[in-house]
Design a protein around this nucleic acid. Sequence first.
RNA 1: GUGGGUGUAGCUCAGUUGGUUAGAGCGCCAGUUUGUGGUACUGGAGGUCGGGGGUUCGAGACCCCUCACUCACCCCA
Length: 426
Amino acid sequence: MARHSEFQSIRGMHDLLPPESERWQLLIETFRTQLGRCGYQFLATPVVEQLEVFARLGEGTDVVTKEMYTFEDRDGQALALRPESTAGAARSFIQHRPTPPWKVWYFSQHFRYERPQAGRYRQHHQLGAECFGPGDGDIDVELIVALWDFYQALGLRRIRLELNSIGEPATRARYSERLQAYLGDRVDQLDPADRVKIEEHPFRVLDSKRPQTQAALVGIPTLVEELTPDEATRFARVCDGLAAAGVPFEVNPRLVRGLDYYTHTVFEIISEAIDAAQSTIGGGGRYDGLVEALGGPATPGFGFGTGVERVLLACDAEGVFGQPAPSLTAFVVEFGGDGSEARDLCLSLRRMGFSVDRAPGKSPKSQMKAADRSGAEFAVILGSDELRDGTVTLRPLRSELEQMVIPRAELAERLRRASTIATDLV
RNA sequence: GUGGGUGUAGCUCAGUUGGUUAGAGCGCCAGUUUGUGGUACUGGAGGUCGGGGGUUCGAGACCCCUCACUCACCCCA
């Protein structure tokens, strides 16, 4: 893209313009409806937090150690743009001590300093939800089903839910050691690029994309085998709940997530329609230790995030969006007067709840052209004859019906009957 | 951070081995139709060829640097 001016948006950060922005509104509205049914309410936390809030997410996460936008303010306080939203929500929970269960949803922008590519941006947006308080698996089911139904409501069909349990931290640690031992015995079978991970991030070897590594992983001990009876029972209840809700899923014993705070249930939802490397459209899990790690009372939690840009990629790939509906009821076209009557008519129609626009000062032909382009259902023509007679010409733009001259007083009623757009007033 | 591809009009792109004044389609503006969009025809506006340097009589084409976009790795939504 050519650079025409001195300034442009920051790498990996994009403007959101109409008509694309309309689809964002649709996504947000659908999400709000879906989560509202489950009793979740909107939460907004600041874009900036103390660096330490995110640092507590763990040393083992690239999001924290490599990708954060960090800076000092004028007082020398260490701050960061949020790379995700769960930490801020947890901080907020601790700060305000709402009575659990605290069920919130959010729409927020996140910042990660990575090289942009398809479905990955330095500023990206997520819709998400968190539930602080209840520690039972039924909350896991509630939120996963809500997210699944959100995708269904959008019309996405080619999606896949992958599920796993990583148990309590003790189980995870035990498995980590076992994994390191297993991998240590087979170092030379792994892809060289993966060998270095054994020490620091043994779990990262599991979901490696490299064929040589994947071949070496056949028969590797799985986390599921390592779960205690209690953990396994808990996981089974989550699986049962999803099955009862009719949500198809597959247990992926190698599913590990990028953030260290997860316990028990973790999941991802992948779009099979996206023809790009970044095809995970949503993911989340349980984080029973997070609130405590941030200095709050021991409180379990579960949450997820879904990437708005990626969901829209999936929607495009599946072609779920039809023709956009008309957004204007009427477009007022004027000529032969000084424009004041058209101006007043336009304003009064708006106060009656109609969506109306106009393009004053241009030729009749140009105004009609503007009316067509605006997507309006009707042109309301105020020419010299109509001005003289106190009438308007009502011309349908989206159908083959004939135009008609009607008394000005009848206009509102005619529009109300003929328009497919609901007015927001009576 | 590593590697590949691409930068020409608002958008999508042509532009031959380096050779006059840089093109097309769509979009935009206007006219054919001084009261009517969506079709058709005609005309018009719009470009420091991403930026800088170099080679050359001559660079949109070649070389170097740089910036941006893009795809992949890493990682993640």
